[in-house]
Design a protein around this nucleic acid. Sequence first.
RNA 1: GCGCCUGUAGCUCAGCUGGAUAGAGCAACGGACUUCUAAUCCGUAGGUCGCAGGUUCGAGUCCUGCCAGGCGCACCA
Length: 556
Amino acid sequence: MKESIKQLILDGARKAYEKGLLKSDDFPEMEIEEPRYDAQGDFSTNFAMVSASVQKMAPRKIAEAVVACMDDTQSVVEKTEIAGPGFINFFLTTAAWYPVLETIVREDDRYGSSEFGGGKKVQVEFVSANPTGPLHVGHARGAAVGDAVGKILAFAGFDVQKEYYINDSGRQIRTLGLSVWLRLCQMLGREVEFPKDCYQGDYIKDIAQELHGKMGTDLSDKEEAEGISICAKYAASVILEGIKEDLAAFGVEYDQWFSEQSLYDTNRVQKAIEDFKAKDLIYEKDGALWFRTEDFGDEKDRVVVRNNGITTYFASDIAYHMEKFDRGFDRVIDVWGADHHGYINRINASIDASGKNSDQFDVILVQLVNLLRGGQPVAMSSRSGEFVTLKDIVDEVGKDAARFLFLSRSYDSGLDFDLEVATQKTSENPVFYVQYVHARIAGIVAKAVAEGILANDAPEWAGCAAVLVEPEEIKLIKLLASFPEIVEKSAATLHPHVVFTYLMALASAFHGYYNKHKVITQDSELSRGRLFLVTAVKKVIRNGLSLLGVSAPERM
RNA sequence: GCGCCUGUAGCUCAGCUGGAUAGAGCAACGGACUUCUAAUCCGUAGGUCGCAGGUUCGAGUCCUGCCAGGCGCACCA
């Protein structure tokens, strides 16, 4: 719709130039926007204002010349107005909007998708928590954001791969093994101390118990080092399975699970270090190996191999990001908790140093979640092992409510997540507000079919729209028409909450319409037209919710 | 001290990458269920967009400096 308005203006401007009404045929980039107020029309352009300097004319004069020469062959424009400093406002005929409904029904679950991304290969990596314990609330927000960003990018025409990076190597895994081993020893009545920096949660005891049940004395008679190693391997795989299950229950799907250890097994970390050494990007100081990240914009150089010979996490991260680009992604997106933001510079530096371009690398920093219950903060301490897990949240408030709330606000802001509100089926809880639209419409359509107004729930709609003339109906269609732009904007800014905000607006418009006008009336022609409209609303609600990973129920 | 994020209605937040008169929800107040689902709707009230400068036809939006809050500044991950 916007495109055709734009074309109308450009054609008008060209004609005005040919007639000598405009001095230049250089037409700068203009905006076509939807004004806030109905009195300012359906669309509005700043063409005259942005052209003022090129034309050396007053904006209003330019606007007059363009309007005078516009030729609306499709007769979509009811009238135009020149307003304010030189805006040209377009008022469309109601009939101009009807084709939108046909498009929606025809494209169905593809409506809103586009070629915006041009098939570019994008990787979104998110959550990537260590397999040393269950996922908690912070991970939950990251999971909701990463999964939604992936879905939105895919819908907007990118070739998306969603990946989880498993930190299954290094110190934290050894600590995990030690934790399980010590719990095992305690179970067997051995006198051992359980250090503070070991994992405290009860799940460690469960795993020890489980492993003992499986291996018995085969395990407990082992030397300590071997025992710890067995425990580490077992615990990590059990916990990872749990993470996978919890994410699946949260509706999060991955295309790939990538193991950090595999970077070592295939010598990629060693090779990266050797390559950088050869390029003099790595030097030795105080017995450690340092990467010259400062030369690439980081505040200081960073250690990749400690003086005890053990590589740092950063070392494998360098190899990992190199590996990502080697896989041919045009764009690499990492979703991180805001507390990791200090890490961005060094990753950027390492990417530039490795000959890739850090412009193709984006980090989505998700701000922290404040977990509340009835307005009171819920104590979160991973040290004592007492925290609310992702599983707890899914069990308590459900996947839909949780995901919707996590995506309701920009991830640039901290989020208060109140378990009590999320459980309540009240108007404070937005997920029901939107899902209710879908269920309501399903009910209406079912009734229409039952009463014989519709032959089935996917009838032929051709020509039905002509009866739609109420302002609330046109408002709804306009909203539906803007959905593809919303998806595009959400993809361009990597902000899923844009879709949330849109769904709330659409739901509000529908509920208002529903309360004011009956869909099924005595007039069967009118009824069919309105059923056409609400069917389109239902599809767009479903498509939007699906981008956020939220279900669209047929009844509630 | 340095860096990232935030500051808009009493509360929680939108605000279309510079547009015209500032937008929702909640809370408050007043209304609407014999109806296609009231998990809904309609109305009233509520603002010095943290403060001060700057950029231009035009700033909540961009720049600079302050102020306040959150989070980071390891040979941890």
